[in-house]
Write a protein that binds this DNA or RNA. Structure first.
Lengths: 151, 151
DNA sequence: CCGGTATAGTTCATATATGAAGAAAGTACC
DNA sequence: GGTACTTTCTTCATATATGAACTATACCGG
């Protein structure tokens, strides 16, 4: 299975000839972390996108409409249509009718989907701990507060 | 041809239910910054990927082989094949034969390509300054040093 | 009830990315 | 020189993402 990028890694890495070190360090580090997450999740047969969708469904505790999924994952609905297609093909979610709105479709986790999310979460936790170790020396509170300003 | 993403934004944003705040703040901030770069570059008709390629060519000061481009942009060659296709369609670069190796193709900037890179760099610089302002309160040296540990 | 408008999901075109497989050209070694 | 490996670039299949256009349904005012 292939990869996908998000907002072009290549472009971001190049940037201006000098200055702006901090911004580019941050972007570069973020891509490296995403790569680690990708590698970790691959061990349990998930991609970052798939794990994200499963996690939102687990956290919701009930089937979510595809629009709601899109809102929570901050992406457009057509993306969710395709992601749910792939998750359905993997047997991790099922589309179910929304009894209250005939236009609506809800994504419902299958037992396998739940298992897979749990396995993914363990992988992600490990990466998270590694990252925390790497960031030792930077005050987490200060950093998180500053980063939160980006929305 | 269908799309492509990079390292799934959606997946990364969800993550574990609690803890790991710092890592996710960092990833979230990185995506927000990339979005700003995207919006800024769009004003001059560039994407992050295109600006990145142009910038590497400008910095090199001479035509680069596509393999060299791929190495500098940390991506696979097939990606560069397509990116150069699009840049060529935009009139920003030209493929030229490598006189020393008949297998090789070099990407050469056109005058328009150079202009566009300069315009893009101005946009990027502005975003960089905004970001620096937002990160006021975090010691840039400490942060950059910690982030550098991610490779 | 009707017409207009808003919302839900899908479909299509396109950009960005990966990786496998192929063709053409270079290199090494007998 | 010929055979075998390597490198270069392209092509194809696929994953992820966006946005525009389309269909079906919902809702609102009269």
């Amino acid at each position: 299975m292939k990869k996908v990028p998000s907002r072009s890694r290549a472009g971001v890495r190049a940037a201006t000839v000098n200055g702006g070190q901090t911004m580019f360090s941050l972007l570069h580090a973020a891509h490296a972390i995403e790569k680690r997450l990708e590698d970790a999740l691959e061990k349990v047969g998930l991609s970052n996108a798939k794990f994200g969708a499963l996690t939102h469904l687990v956290e919701a505790g009930e089937p979510l409409s595809l629009s709601e999924c899109a809102a929570r994952m901050t992406c457009v609905r057509s993306n969710i249509t395709q992601l749910i297609d792939r998750l359905e093909a993997d047997g991790l979610v099922r589309r179910v009718d929304d009894p209250a709105d005939r236009r609506g479709v809800r994504a419902m986790l299958t037992p396998l989907g739940i298992e897979r999310q749990v396995a993914g979460a363990k992988q992600v936790d490990q990466v998270q701990k590694e990252v925390a170790r790497t960031l030792a020396g930077v005050d987490p509170a200060t950093l998180t507060r500053a980063l939160a300003a980006f929305g």
